[in-house]
Nucleic acid binder design. Structure first.
Lengths: 133, 133
DNA sequence: TATTGTTATACTCTATAACTATA
DNA sequence: TATAGTTATAGAGTATAACAATA
């Protein structure tokens, strides 16, 4: 009775979310907040729309997230002087620190989740996930 | 800049959903409808609550799904004569056929998705997913 | 006129609580 | 009184459309 790939992936997704939730709560950041911080660490963005597209989010539902992150001093978000319609986005030092701390905690849990696999198996699994996603 | 496991899994999940949606639409069944049919094929259930628990769903949000499947003659859903509070659930022959057809189509797409991996790699990937999910 | 960001609105999904029917 | 199922309601999350500012 072989399960669909979809069911397996959904199961793992649920498990990872359950794992990450206490970590995110401990650091006082939402899932979307963390996703945004991570995206901006990887590359600063010139527009909110580009950021939204890069994380498969709607631009409108990002706005409350950005408001909150900015209010807490975790991101910079200033109008581009050369085109004042766009908002230049980037992490503040505090934002970079927080992203790093959350990611470290998440990595630790992921590592223990996969601890039954050998290092080579873990690498292959990650590699396949990257190719498929 | 290594990505979180969560991001990779979510990406694959989105991709699989996008892949399955046209198939489900073609067969006129919803995602939850297919999940229910698959769960009942694997083992008939004595109560709706047990079915809900087995697929990580709330029992209340299953009811419209069961109504629809029953209306279309895809499931049986009759009160247990020995305790008329509970509904015995199972597939009709039509339901079993439909589940089989949808699953065959989904398997075909999954196979092409993973076609760049060798048979052994595919098996290992599935095995790891099963262990982790 | 076109584009970025924002706000307002509606829609979907899900969960909570109240109700019924059986036991 | 307790349990299975159902219905009604409310809440969260998301998307759509209208709007304001700038080009």
């Amino acid at each position: 009775m072989e399960k669909d790939l979809g069911a397996l992936v959904m199961g793992l997704g649920r498990r990872l979310i359950a794992m990450e939730q206490p970590i995110l709560a401990r650091h006082g950041v939402s899932m979307w907040g963390y996703v945004v911080l991570t995206a901006l660490r990887d590359n600063p963005m010139r527009t909110q729309a580009a950021l939204a597209a890069s994380i498969n989010a709607d631009k409108t539902r990002l706005i409350p997230v950005l408001d909150e992150l900015q209010r807490r001093g975790l991101i910079e978000r200033e109008p581009d002087p050369r085109d004042r319609r766009v908002r230049l986005l980037g992490l503040t030092p505090d934002g970079r620190d927080l992203q790093q701390r959350v990611q470290t905690d998440i990595r630790k849990d992921e590592k223990s989740l996969m601890s039954e696999m050998s290092d080579e198996e873990q690498a292959a699994f990650r590699r396949h996930l990257e190719k498929l996603s």
